[in-house]
Structure formats: C-alpha cells, structure tokens
Design a protein around this nucleic acid. Sequence first.
DNA 1: AACAACGGGCTTTTT
DNA 2: GCCCGTTGTT
Length: 761
Amino acid sequence: MSFLDELNGSQRAAVENIDGPMMVIAGAGSGKTRVLTYRIANLINKGVDPFSILALTFTNKAAKEMKDRIVSIVGSSEARNITMGTFHSVFAKILYANANKIGYPSNFTIYDTQDTKSLLKTITKEFGLDDKVYKPGIVYGRISSAKNNLISPEAYEDNANIISEDRLSRMPDLYKIYKEYQLRCFRAGAMDFDDLLYQTNILLRDFPDVLHYYQHKFKYVLVDEYQDTNYSQYLIVKKLSALYENICVVGDDAQSIYSFRGANMENILNFRKNYPDYKLFKLEQNYRSTSTIVKAANSIILHNKDQIKKEVWTHNEEGQKIKVLRCLTDNEEGRIISKMIADIKEKEGLNFKDFAILYRTNAQSRSFEESMRKMNLPYKIYGGLSFYQRKEIKDLIAYYRLTANHNDEEALKRIINYPKRGIGNTTIEAITHASRQYGVSLWDIISNFDKYPVNISGSAKNRVHQFVTKIQSYTTQLDVAPAYDLAKEIAQSSGILKDLYDDKTPEGITRYENVQELLAGVKGFSAQLEETGEKGTLSDFLLDVALLTDADEVKEEDENTVSLMTIHSSKGLEYPHVFIVGVEENLFPSQFSLNSRTELEEERRLFYVAITRAEKSCTISYVTSRYKWGQLISAEPSRFIGEIDPQYLDTEYAVTSTTGGRSLSGYRRPSVDRNPSSMSVSNSGVPPRRNLIPLGKNDKTKSAVEIPHLKVGYNVKHERFGKGKVVNLVGTGGDQKADVFFPRVGKKTLILKFAKLEVLD
DNA sequence: AACAACGGGCTTTTT
DNA sequence: GCCCGTTGTT
C-alpha cells in the first residue's frame, strides 16, 4: 500500500501535483505538515533528486520535524540531501559561501537582538541623541521593517513618506542612525537577522552567476507558513524559483500572527498575481480538535474582515464546551489551573505532557511556575530567556566570536574586561574614541597602538596588549583545532570557568553548569558532523548557534511535563488539553493593538491559533486584578470571550460577583496547604464540581482494558495519533508492544495495554 | 578601577 | 517585580 492512501482527497491532490506554481491553504489541524512532507516524499519517489529540493520553514523545529518525517518515509540517505531549514539558516549558509562577493568576511558574525540594540544605543549616544526618545527597541523596529522591505539606508533617506513619519514620531534623525548602523555592522563583519535576508537579496540581485547557480540547483521549492513571510523572503523565493516555477507555498491566512515582524499577507495576493495559472488547494477538514473547538474557533475568526473564505469542519466528536474561568488574581489563576491539571490528569489517567498553558506574554508565566512548583507538578517553560541569551553563555560565545572575527565590536566590548583584567571605562573610552577618529574597528586600534596612538597609560596599554595576544593565539587554532578542544581551552584560559567556579552561590553554580553544558553542546556538534565526514570547526558551531532558539530545544521523547509557552511559540503544536490564560482586555488583545483594526485582527488570529491548539478540551481564564509592575491593577474579561458563539461556552465559573455568581476561589483552598506530593489523591478534599472534569459521554475510558488482537499490516486508530498501520509486533499478552506508523506523527512504539488501540480492519 | 546602593523604566509577540 | 544603568564610595 502506498503512503498516499493515508490522505484524504484534497490532501492527496495537493501531494500529487508535481509541477508548476501551487498554493495550499490549510486550515488549522488539517494535516498541513503531512501534505508538505508527503509531497516531498512523493517527489523523491517520482525520481526527483533530493539535492534539487529546497524546503523553507519558519522555525528550526518545524524543519527538523519535517525532516524526521521524510526520513521515516524515504530513508535518511535520500532525505539528508534535501536543503531544508528556516529562511534564516538556509540563507546564512548560502551567504557564508558567498560573503566575499558582497564585501563581508566569509566568517561574518550574526548579531542577535541584544547586539543590535546595544550597537544602536551606542550610535544614538554618539550622535548626541536622547536614547529615551530614540529607544533602541523602536529604532530597531523601524530599521528592521525597512530592511524587510528592502529599503536601503539611502532609499530610506530619500523616501519622503518615511522621513515625515519619523518626524511625526519625533525621531527625525533616524535615517542617520540607520545609515551609521549599517556601516558599523559592515565594518564589524556582522549581519543582523534581517541582513541574512536583505544581503541574500543583494547577492542574488548583483551576482547573476550566483542566482543562476541556485536557480538551477533548486528545481523544486516549498515554503511553509507562507502567510508569515515578509517581502524580503517573498522576493528571494520568487527569484530562486523563477527558472522552473515549481513553487509550492502552504499557509493559512487565519494564522498570520507575525506582521509585527514584517510578515505580509499580501504575499498571498502577490502569489496569485505572479502566477495567474497557479493551482489552489484547500485543506478544510480538521483532524485535531473536537467539533466544539473547531466551531468555536470559526465563530471567532468570523469577526475579522480580512480573510480568505474557507470552511473548516471536522468529523470528530462534539466534545465538551469551552470552559471560561474567572479568578481574582494572577496568583489564584495559577493555583486553580495547576489544581485543575492535577485533577484532570488523575481522573482521566493522563500524562502531564497532555496539558499546555498558553499566554500572551512571557511575563505571565511566573504565577504558573510558582503554583506548579508548590504542587510538585513537572512543567517546562518554552521561550523566555533562551539558554543562549544567558550572560555566561553570551560571554563565552563572545570569545568564540571575537576569535573568529576580530572586528566583531559587540563581542569585543563584552569581554575586553571580563573576567576583570583591569581595563576600565577610561581605557575603553579612549579606544572607542580613537576608533571613531580613525574610522577603523576597535580591534584595529588595540592591535596597532603604533599606528593609531591612543592616550592611555602604559600599564593599561600593556593589559590590552595581553588581551589581544590571547585572542590571537586562539585564532591561530581556529581552523586546525577540533571545535571542542578550542572551545574548552578558551573557556579555561580566558578565566571564565574559574570566575564562575569561584562563585559558590546557587546562581553561580548554575552558571558554571550552563557553561559546561555549552561545552558539551560543542562536543555533540562536532561529533554529529564527524559522522557525516565534515570537519566542524568552532566557526561552524557559531553559525549554528546564532540561529538557534530555545523553542528548538529537542524535547526528550519521554519528557512528561506540562508545557508553558506564549501563543506565538505554540503555533504548529497541539495538546489534548489547553488552557489559555490571562484573556483580559489590554493584555489579550494587547493594549498596543487597540489603535487599528489590522492590529486588533492580528490579535484575534492569535486567539484563533490558541484555541485551535486544543484537541479535547480548551479552558479560557481571566482575572479581575493582576499585578503589573508590582502594582495590583484591575482587569476585565477580553472582548474575544464575548465573540465566541455562546453555545460553545460553559461560563459557570465566569459569572461576575456583582451578579451573585461565585468565583472559583473556594475551589482551591482545601488543597493549597496540603502536602504538595499528595496530588496523587484525586479527590483531595475538593468538593466534586460538575464541568471541571469531563464526565459521561466523553469518558471513553474502560476500567478493564481489553488488549486487541493485532497483526502486522492492520489499520488501527489511536485516540491521539489518529489512524495508523501496524508495522511490527513484539512480545505477547499484557506486555505486547506494537510499532505503529501514524501518518500524522510518524512511527510510535506502543504498549498495547495502555495504548487503547481501535482495530479498523 | 571595582563595587555597592539607588532609581527609573519597562512588556507584546521572535528568526 | 525585576533588570539595567547611573551614581557615589573606597
């Protein structure tokens, strides 16, 4: 049997359409990733060379997931040759190979947001401008948006509209900052995230031979999350696929939530314009959620004016209504929801990983962290301060960066006096001054005091010189030493390891461990590369690390924790039970979105994304007062709750106190002061309340689970993974295990007495 | 040059 | 409430 038989009609049509431009509009939970992966697998089965396939995703995680699934269908020897990754990582590699053509060093640094903001702040001050007016974050936003629309510093300056906008927002000199920023990045041999796309555009524009090379190489181009691409990405894709026009874009306008980053839904319209004979496929059957959830989500998105018409529907059971919870404070919200999770888990025999708590802003995670820690519930926070953004990690990586690229100013400023080596502010001031005066990099100054005299004391000069010599000695090893050896040597001889080791506070110990973890990461990185026969220097590691975020952290197979994350990072994921918290006016929708319809509609799409993450149940909570900046402020329920068709809502616990309803505060009290580890007792003093735990018709659990009689080749259905096919059986009786291939999630090994498989044959 | 104490500003979302 | 940068002290 072919894997194509796993698909429904429209999915299959999209998968089997090989040549020419095509667009797939895929509703939430409609098997979008399955279509993308199967389409790639089908291309390969039809004889397309994997080397000629380019698949672009939005996150590293999505890329990895897709690659894994393709491996499971066509095998890794084929799949590894596909060019697959995020826009940023794929084009960073292409830029690495061609950097010299556009004047960048071949080992250019990638500036992260912190580096960028710090540089912008420096420049702002140098121009004598007030960084409270020219806030680095805002300035970055303007520059970023210019770059994503391919507006060069010169074009920015000449654009009357932009200049008058800047005047209106009292930042008339922004164009100067942009120009200087771009120059300084260039001199530092650094690109920011936006440059990775912007400079790719320049490369493809100015070097036809490069363009031709990649046009010929990538005969088939696929783009995931097309609704989230910006103009810069759009143009790259258009150019690369101009020769063969075998371009397949997949997206859902209802899930466009990144316009703040320049994402442009017009790209969907542009696609139609550019390829008038394109084929359109719509995936409208939802396989993920109950019909209540699907319909509730539809009723929300109906309030948006801007949308492509489509009808998402499902054959799934009705399921329970969406519960709306009202809590008094954010702390109570944390306690109640943690308790609910513990209760539902016990009552239904679920795993912690079946639950997710989704919020609008990272700051909201705190109350949930606290309550879950108190109750001993395992949880994991995704996003927030990434591992790679921690100070100790950034410090060590700054050494690596400076070793690879001496002109990396942000790295240099970070570590020239860390660990402390007596190079203080006055010295650094003098060096910076000289660098501005001569128009050369900081490194040029400190490595050439003869050529560029600086007015600092002899002893300071000497200390700086020692620092320079140290970095130079690392650099000589860069291309010869194995990545791990050099990484470790730098960690030691720079003094970082010792500095952290001497700090015996709990935080200090954690920092030391983090650095060890980074070193282990380097080791793992080079080991992985050695398998494929590549060398894997420290510079290669840097490229990898610059584009990694916490969201990409591999989730261990057996990791069984409640997931906490922002709605943005939940995109593409699904959980049986989802809690959307802090659904209040001014928080969700965010107060910053209230000025315009388009921004409000984006918030609504975000709410749509949140609801459609849920498979079985969805709970929405809001509080009446919340701590903000240490102050208790009052809050009211979000308008979005009222926009859901009320027939799908259960508002028993949402009635306001003024109308005589009860809050849930009584619910939590009996349990709070109990021994936290007693959570295994499901009815721990909590009065049974209807609606908190699904009962009756939704309760499919049988007390004595019957082990189905299976044979290899049988089609089966799993509660969570959907339909699948048995590929292997191990053991007998109560211990029997089965390998089942599920088109939606890949191959899983299931212990039959737990798995509750339904035999379809 | 290094460190402790203080005050202001901040929060939208991320590659 | 917390992080950052600025200020004052040694």
